[in-house]
Design a protein around this nucleic acid. Structure first.
Lengths: 324, 324
DNA sequence: CTGAAAGCGCTTACAG
DNA sequence: CTGAAAGCGCTTACAG
């Protein structure tokens, strides 16, 4: 026999489907006898309610979509873990939409999620100008990115992170630290903070932007070329992987770290901290960001009229290792 | 107006719901005129079919559950990315079940997935003895782990990986390499291969097992203590993160790598290769493993009677860096 | 305290 | 070529 349904349980227990449904959902008054008979039938048949049917009736799927560039990146992997954990605690399941670092998929996923009637979406990608978000009429929360009017963004304190990193490099004796980042657009608070600190110290800011869509090996090559052609005694990278590229370049070219080159990364994902505990980095509170995003989303799923969008940034922290 | 449904489209186009459904699914003969009217109504209303209702009818959800220890681990993050990608290509969505490294959740997820009527499950966890898998009557594929009778397992060539690593260490001059692994049970093909090589060379095998459930900092402490008390001139770690712990210990205690201590890891996840390209490691074909798992699952979803379980192991590869 | 009936949003034989 | 009706597996007013 294939999967038993409510009807089978009802037949087995000798009651109506209504009654079985009531026992299952613990709704209304049921005699102990009935309750027991239904429970017995459920275990005898190995019955499990069809959540799809329930979703259709309840007009909610208890499903949330998470859109990320790729969970192969330790930062987003850690973010996904914590988003999933917070959702599970609240009784939600998570559909993982991994864009594989290609922007085109994002729009498609946005559509797919709505077709699947997810109750909400959490999105954290690099891509700008994905239209869909503005048109979607379901609760959405962004992490570290402005998606559209009216969509709240959870983020950590990028300005303070940038200030901490730049000041730290200078305090460790760097006089010509470079900032390496993906894109140097106006909204980049870390780059702005770096420039602010450099100005304050009367130093010349230099920002090297490699571009988000650059393949990893091309990024490495670009960074190595830049460092070779442009003397620098410090690197403030906007993510840990990039910082580690600089570290590897230093080893290959015989630079001493931190004496010749001080290196500071960004993010502080646990896996990378475990791999290279010596890297100085600015740690983002990834778990708190995930929890905050889920909280915000839950609030909006419960009350669609919520509109405040401004979020207090979450605190970051500089962790010093031997690279600086 | 809330989400439009088929009825609304039908009314807008002046046809029956049957006809709209036909146009949407491109089924049967439709006049061009009707087709156009329906298409117009769909765009005018911004209609998107409710996939939940479709699932209920079709008796398939096009949903697959992926169970992993945690995607915060770069190996499983990369695995999850590729599983998701392969599933998406075949029109499946993926529910991510992240066990957060705690075994109890696995059984619960197994239940939850069945309640949600996923079409299949791919599981890759460390836990042994999770009952549910044997009882579940839906297609399941395991990655790198025997789950239960009749469930096929995709794995890479652990024996060859172990042989490669051990032989490599010895060829690089190591005479007392230790194997560090999570658990040293009989089915551990990498440990067995290590012992085989050591025997062949007349060397004394030593296996240090730290236990899966050991918290990361305790693992690090245990490894450092072991290395400090037991002289070794080589380390073959069963995963890259553990290998990097040995590398960090060497740096802290002034050992030269590879002269005093040769280090070989295992897995070769891209993120970690990017972070520490110099680490010698045995690379598992993560993407191929994911693709194979999805292929196997699709075959079983299409034909539930499939039973062959033996899978040819996928090839591994030794990547040499400066740590050996 | 329990059941018959309607309905969630679709698809699919079956008629016409 | 198009439509009325039944049904996917549940829940929930509404009766009794």
């Amino acid at each position: 026999m294939s999967r038993p349904k409510l009807q089978d349980v009802a037949a087995h227990a000798g009651v109506s489907v209504t009654t079985v449904s009531r026992v299952l959902n613990n709704r209304g008054y049921l005699s102990d006898d009935i309750r027991r008979r239904v429970d017995d039938a459920v275990t005898a048949l190995g019955y499990r309610p069809n959540e799809i049917a329930r979703s259709l009736i309840g007009q909610r799927s208890t499903l949330v979509g998470l859109i990320v560039p790729t969970v192969a990146d330790p930062f987003f992997g850690e973010l996904a873990t914590h988003v999933e954990g917070a959702l599970a605690e609240s009784g939600y399941k998570m559909l993982l939409c991994d864009c594989h670092d290609t922007p085109e998929r994002e729009e498609r996923y946005l559509d797919l999620l709505q077709g699947n009637r997810v109750d909400g979406i959490i999105s954290s990608t690099h891509n700008r100008d994905v239209a869909g978000y503005g048109r979607a009429d379901l609760p959405i929360v962004a992490i570290d990115r402005r998606l559209s009017e009216g969509i709240p963004t959870v983020h950590s304190d990028n300005r303070t992170g940038g200030l901490l990193a730049a000041e730290h490099l200078i305090s460790r004796g760097s006089r010509s630290p470079v900032h390496i980042t993906a894109t140097d657009h106006p909204g980049n608070a870390r780059a702005a903070a770096y420039r602010e600190v450099m100005d304050r110290h009367g130093l010349e800011p230099r920002v090297m932007a490699y571009g988000y869509d650059t393949p990893v090996d091309r990024r490495r090559a670009a960074i190595e070329t830049w460092l070779t052609l442009n003397p620098a005694d410090g690197v403030f990278a906007s993510d840990d992987l990039t910082a580690l590229m600089a570290l590897d370049w230093a080893r290959k070219t015989g630079r001493r770290v931190p004496d010749d080159l001080r290196i500071v990364g960004y993010d502080g994902a646990a896996a990378l901290r475990m791999a290279v505990p010596g890297l100085t980095t600015v740690r983002q509170p990834i778990e708190r960001m995930a929890a905050r995003a889920v909280d915000l989303l839950r609030a909006r799923m419960a009350d669609a009229t919520l509109t405040e969008v401004e979020e207090e940034p979450l605190p970051v922290e500089l962790l010093q290792g031997w690279t600086s």
